[in-house]
Design a protein around this nucleic acid. Structure first.
Length: 127
RNA sequence: GGAGUCGGCCAGACAGCCGCCGCGCGGGCAACCGCGCGGAGGAAAGUCCGGGCUCCACAGGGCAGGAUGCCAGGUAACGCCUGGGCGCUAUAAGCCGGGGACGCGAGUCCCCGACCCAAGGCGACGGAAAGUGCAACAGAAACAUACCGCCGAUGGCCUGGACUUUGACGCGCAAGCGGCAAAGUCCUUCCUUUCAGUGGGUGUGGCGAAAGCCAUAUACGCCAAGGGAACGGGUCAUGCGCGUCAGCGCAUGGCCAAUCCCCGCAAGGGGAUGGGCACAGGCAAGGGUGAAAUCGUGCGGUAAGAGCGCACGGCCGCGCCGGCAACGGCUGCGGCGGGCAAACCCCAUCCGGAGCAAGGCCAAAUAGGCAGACGUUGAGGCGGCCCGCCGAGUCUGCGGGUAGGCUGCACGAGGCGAUGGGCGACCAUCGUCCCAGAUGAAUGGCUGUCCACGACAGAACCCGGCUUACCGGCCGGCUCCCACU
């Protein structure tokens, strides 16, 4: 099933997060940052950062994470081989959140592709 | 049917598609795939109490510390719940009284006041005659206090001094002497008064950095004007004292008058008193202050007053009766200088500590390494101290290695139903059901339909409570009112 989203498609370890941050391929805008980096796998993975400082209630944080995860799930086949991180920077409306997340994912995809062509090396040759 | 109040329950629904987590079955070496079932809350929250569970000597004694605090019951336990007691308390209706409007009238309506005060609500609700302490501001006083005020019983002080003139009187031969009375002057002192002036003080307003200055008000003082300064009603009798005498003082009594109180419709009757001041003193009634002022009201009583006495009421202790008890009732006896214990304190009851990152297992790790200190004459541990107990390793530094998985982890003080017991919280028996277990953290998205247009909000070891947040809906109990039978 192309839309399936199991546990292995979630990023959990600190190393995985920090390597994406180090790749410096940033998209999105407003209250949401979207980052990406190649992961050397044939499927995409998603990491979410929703700070308690921005959304106080647990229900609100769950709501944001579910919306982002659902949108990732519907577009994951286009992002194969990438790790995606969505980081919430400020509170925003649901419609705007979804819109910027979709745009950010596209930006990151083209950014990562350009970076790979310029490096002219094999994919996934990072530390 | 309406109003009020209390309690319980629910928390958008349905269908399709795409996804997430767990369990079971089947397939596959495995990753995984298919099917079926299940998948947040009444508060999951705050982490405020109580317990289970786990580890820490054997969880044991004392001190310290903490918590609780009407009584009885429920419970594993509680600061929770149920029932009861006590205290405080809201509003409507009702009833009573008064007034008004309308009506021929029965009456109806409205307003005001008082009474009684529903279901309910609220209460850290043990002890203040064991002790220490506290009470801002205001007020005289929050402690033994007196500002205004009341009194004049008791003690005290004063009711004046000097001078001039006149008059009658007494004594004396006379000169004169004696007190008395009247008029006047001055001093002293007291009271009253008002305009102007003036002095210090206080309040208010303005200016100023401040010192202060100015304005105004107020009572007081000075000054000014006016008024007063009394041996205590009068008289008679008797007795005593002093004086040469005139006379004076004291005591008792009679009559007439004055003032006050009481009785009486009145006439009148009865009783008390005998100058002033308020310095000492007496009082705590009234005013004023305050959250609170020494028990409330009335009568007696007194110089004025006061639980000083009495009646009724209130409070405390003893006794008797009812109740398991808190408590209630009663007459009898004795007593009555308050408040705060959410100040210390006293009394009673309870509490060992730490927490699922507890704790256990597996795997991995050059490797359970080196150096020092203290230790069976007791190191160290039992997370405050002592006793008591366990007891052979413990601590520090250097150098390094892991920080992955499993378990704990969901059958429980469990839910639902029936029967029985209990006012009730709840308990007992039987039947039936299995109902979330994530861990970078699962419940969502899209589409359609319907309606009352959807609040607060997400399990993290588990339960029982409390508290806080919340759009609304449904049901029931109780009280009052209206209508019908």
């Amino acid at each position: 099933m192309p839309f399936a989203f199991g546990r292995h498609k979630k990023m959990r370890k600190t190393d995985e997060f920090s390597s994406v941050f180090r790749f410096r391929c940033v998209g999105g805008g407003g209250g949401l940052s979207v980052l990406a980096a190649p992961n050397g796998l044939d499927y995409a993975r998603l990491g979410l950062i929703v700070p308690k400082r921005i959304i106080a209630t647990a229900v609100g944080r769950n709501r944001v994470k579910r919306l982002l995860r659902e949108n990732f799930r519907m577009r994951q086949d286009a992002l194969a081989g990438l790790d995606i991180i969505a980081q919430l920077k400020a509170a925003m409306a649901e419609d705007a959140l979804i819109e910027t997340f979709r745009a950010g994912m596209l930006q990151c995809k083209t950014c990562a592709e350009n970076r790979a062509r310029r490096a002219d090396g094999p994919t996934g040759s990072r530390t």
